Simulated assay, not measured.
Amino acid sequence: MNFCAFILWGITEGFFAEAFTCSAVNLLRILLLIKMAPYLSLIPDHICVLIVKRKAVHIEVLVITIGTFSVHLWEYLTDRSPNAWAKLGIGLGYGFSMLLCIVALLSFRTTGVYSFEMLAVGIPVQILSLAQITSAITIEYFAAIAVTTLAILALSFLKPCCMLGRKYAYGCLLGIVFLLQIAAVFRHFHMVHHKNKESPAVMSVTAYLYTLTATSSFQHRTNLPAIPHSIVYLFGATGLIVVNSVIVAVELIQKAKKGQRTIRDLQIILLPIESLFIIGWVTLQMYALCMEIKIKIRKREMNKNKIAHTDKKEDNIPRSPLGSQVSHELHEMEPLSPSDCRGATLLEVSESDTH
């Protein structure tokens, strides 16, 4: 119902970017809820279930990216008359970012391990293209975003080597660079918000896309704490639907009374709440990952302590003198060689002859 409400809202009022983003988020939340369901492990591993487990986040990123930024691109091409070089630069930026999102979606085995890096590179490329459309870009922030993006690309090339022995070090370094990229992007939004009236809405969409990108870096784990898992799932299944319905209803009532909108863009309210839902899921995944690492470390320490205790036991075993004496007597009772037996026989014969 919320999906239909936002579509009708966009058609009647002409807010296409807002209507597309809000309706797509409400519709694609179904895939995220299936992925986050506590009973998902009970469902047989069908091909559709595997796709939802692995690619639900990538599907949502691709749909929101294509739809939202395509609206801005269409308005730019129809309302203005850009020259050929501007069209070429913006088109290459959008095309490259879309290509990265599509490859991240279609990759499963070989390139599937690079899906997070692809999404993390695609988002700032779109931001820079959008900044070129609105003519709101400065050299220093362009350089900051470009440096962090190139750093993620460089780390992705080093990933096969790092996965062999320094897996956690690579993850920490990639996370630091990713946070620096987010800081550079939002610092850019903060400096240019007065030049673009749609900057708050674009900032909300970007924050939501970055939250989904962070979610794509985690595997689907089932060893989550039961009560927090159920709370997050119920918040997404019921709480978000109620909140979206109330927000749309209040906005329609206020507009009918005052004749103008109370909120400039509904994305500013809806997408942060959706991001809170995704952050709750990421927090559970991080908790499960930390518990796995803790259990592995504990098992390793227990094995080391067991081996050390066994070695210490063997070193402390007393050696009795009776055992050494028995071994000495056994050594004296060793069988003689054939030559020694022949010599002993001749000696006995000679002694008998003399007698």
Rank of each mutant, 00 (worst) to 15 (best):
N2K: 04
N2I: 03
A5Y: 06
I7T: 01
L8A: 07
W9Y: 08
G10P: 08
T12Q: 04
G14P: 08
F16T: 14
E18T: 09
F20Y: 10
C22N: 05
C22K: 13
S23H: 05
A24I: 00
R29S: 04
I30R: 12
I30V: 09
I30A: 10
I30K: 03
L31G: 07
K35F: 10
M36E: 15
L40D: 06
S41W: 12
L42E: 08
P44S: 08
D45E: 15
D45Y: 09
V49E: 11
L50T: 01
A56V: 12
E60I: 14
V61Q: 07
V61Y: 07
V61E: 12
V63C: 01
F69W: 03
L73E: 06
T78H: 09
R80I: 03
R80L: 11
S81Y: 02
S81H: 10
L88E: 15
G89M: 08
S97T: 09
M98R: 12
C101S: 12
V103N: 12
L105F: 10
S107P: 13
Y114P: 09
Y114V: 00
F116D: 07
E117N: 00
G122I: 01
V125G: 05
I127H: 04
A131R: 15
I133P: 07
T134N: 15
A136R: 14
A136W: 12
I139M: 11
E140D: 06
F142S: 13
A143T: 09
I145M: 06
A146W: 09
L150M: 02
F157M: 02
P160H: 01
G165F: 04
R166N: 06
Y168L: 08
L173A: 11
G175I: 02
I176L: 14
F178V: 06
L180D: 02
R187E: 03
H188K: 09
M191A: 15
H194G: 06
K197E: 08
S199A: 14
V202R: 05
M203V: 00
A207F: 05
T213P: 02
A214T: 13
R221I: 03
R221S: 13
N223C: 15
I227L: 04
S230L: 14
Y233L: 13
Y233P: 10
I241C: 07
S245Q: 08
I253T: 05
G259V: 02
R261L: 06
R261K: 09
R261A: 08
T262V: 14
R264F: 05
Q267R: 12
I269M: 00
L270H: 04
G280C: 06
T283N: 07
T283M: 13
T283W: 09
L284A: 10
M286K: 02
Y287W: 13
C290E: 13
M291C: 15
I295C: 00
K306C: 04
I307D: 15
A308F: 02
T310P: 04
E314K: 10
N316P: 02
R319H: 03
P321C: 11
V326M: 15
E329H: 13
H331R: 12
E332T: 11
M333H: 09
S337T: 07
S339A: 14
C341R: 05
E348V: 13
S350N: 13
H355M: 13
